[in-house]
Design a protein around this nucleic acid. Structure first.
Length: 401
RNA sequence: GGUGAGUUACUCAAGUGGCCAAAGAGGGCAGACUGUAAAUCUGCUGGUUUUACCUUCGAAAGUUCGAAUCUUUCACUCACCA
């Protein structure tokens, strides 16, 4: 296999759909024969302060392109964030204020260079050219799209049918994202499969505005969240943040289902397809315990976002807590007054939000003091130190003084 | 602008004067079983030292012994017409 074919294989790995693949091949050929680079665009709305593993699927693919001559156009959608991408949303998104957007954007910059090559990355803010577009520009931009076509979009049509409001501003979102491609003269745009409509608008607009090229589109599957049901997102609290502390990151990854683990391997591991298939086979034949496979994956990810060896440390901590049922090493300590009612103390320690909830948990044998289940919900704490375990995951050390 | 329909807990959704802290489903939490996996079974899922009381059904005011339920005003959403 020659270099070009090899590069193409790497690029295609794990991706869901490619539109205009021959064009990508031409760009690669041109790179290898003439040393000419090309532009790969991906946009991120700075709507949350940090990125999670779901975003990493795309960023990883951008890094792959950088290895084969791609110059990354990393768009921080500061302007479009103020509209709110309607993709996958069932209702109009809240509009963020400027300060939050800028703050988030700064954190983004810090995080992506854990992965991307600085010399081959242009970070750009789309407010730069979208402000210049002006009202007349916007109107002529909007004349390139019909309401009927907009309503072809699955999420719009669903909302329309179910009588959920759609703001006109949301219709402008795909247009503005598409205009980014016009302004930047992108060759390839990356996005999730849910972005298909927006990505295709980019192609259409490049043609209308005579950019002289129509971008190829490469779509990656959407990473499922830890629950394995909905896509990974901060608001659903089923995400692994890139900045998560090592032990937490490890524990979160261990909680995914076995089926989902293969999906994660496929989209996030540096292991190649053959290795992954071999593991899958071994698990099936019971040569490899699925828990071991999951640990290896969790270790790989923790090592990548922290430093080498942190994954192994996290694994040891994890097993000591959950296998040997020991307490975590960095357990939170809270001081409590003598004679405090146990339920009140748990609320003070912020393990639960109400004493009613704690009462219920006590009735369900979920509260353990020094590893012994408490059955007296009226208990008042006397002086001393108590290790409290609430359910499987919540711990606190109470110092009663 | 006109006409009609609607707004119930985290989400969907029942309830149309008292038996309503409000059915059911999903989600979540907990217990059992496990590999803190999945699946399954069981229980819980407004608050308060809790056989009781307090605050909730878009907002406010009213009718009533008693209101999620009836009346009025307001806000918001949707459909049709313009």
């Amino acid at each position: 296999m020659n270099k070009i074919q090899n590069a193409l294989e790497e690029i295609k790995r794990g991706c869901a759909e490619i539109i205009d693949e021959p064009r990508i091949e031409k760009l690669l050929t041109n790179y290898y024969e003439n040393g000419e680079n090309y532009f790969v665009k991906a946009g991120f709305d700075p709507t949350a302060p940090d990125l999670h593993l779901g975003h990493y699927v795309l960023i990883h693919k951008l890094a792959t392109f950088q290895r084969f001559g791609g110059i990354v156009q990393f768009i921080i959608g500061d302007f479009t964030a103020s509209i709110g991408d309607p993709t996958g949303k069932s209702e109009t998104r809240k509009i963020l204020n400027k300060e939050d957007i800028l703050k988030n954007a700064t954190t983004y910059k810090e995080q992506i260079f854990k992965i991307l090559d600085k010399d081959k990355t242009n970070i750009v803010f789309n407010s730069k050219w979208l402000y210049e577009l002006g009202i007349d520009g916007l109107i002529s931009l909007a004349s390139n799209m019909t309401v009927a076509r907009m309503l072809e979009r699955d999420d719009f049509s669903k909302r329309y049918k179910s009588n959920t409001p759609i703001a006109i501003s949301e219709f402008t979102y795909p247009l503005l994202q598409g205009y980014d491609s016009v302004y930047l003269k992108s060759d390839i745009e990356l996005g999730g499969t849910d972005q298909k409509f927006n990505l295709l608008v980019g192609r259409t607009l490049q043609k209308v505005y005579n950019v002289g090229k129509e971008q190829s589109v490469l779509m990656m599957p959407i990473l499922d969240g830890l629950d394995g049901v909905q896509k990974m997102s901060k608001s659903l609290n089923n995400y692994v943040g890139l900045q998560d502390e090592a032990n937490e990151m490890f524990a979160k990854l261990m909680s995914i289902s076995d089926d989902l683990m293969w999906e994660y391997y496929n989209l996030l591991s540096i292991k190649n397809a053959n290795e992954i298939n071999q593991m899958k086979e071994d698990v099936k034949n019971e040569k490899l315990h699925p828990k071991k496979a999951k640990e290896d994956f969790a270790k790989e990810i923790v090592d990548r976002f922290h430093s080498d060896g942190d994954g192994e440390k996290a694994r040891e901590e994890f097993n000591s807590i959950f296998q040997k049922k020991e307490l975590p090493s960095d357990i939170k300590e809270v001081e409590i007054e003598d004679g405090t009612w146990i339920a009140k103390a748990i609320v003070i320690a912020k393990l639960e939000s109400s004493t009613s909830a704690v009462r219920r948990l006590i009735k369900q044998n979920a509260l353990k003091i020094d590893d012994i289940a408490l059955n007296d919900e009226n208990l008042k704490l006397k002086q001393g130190i108590y290790n409290i375990k609430l359910g499987k995951k919540r711990f606190v050390k109470l110092k009663v003084i």
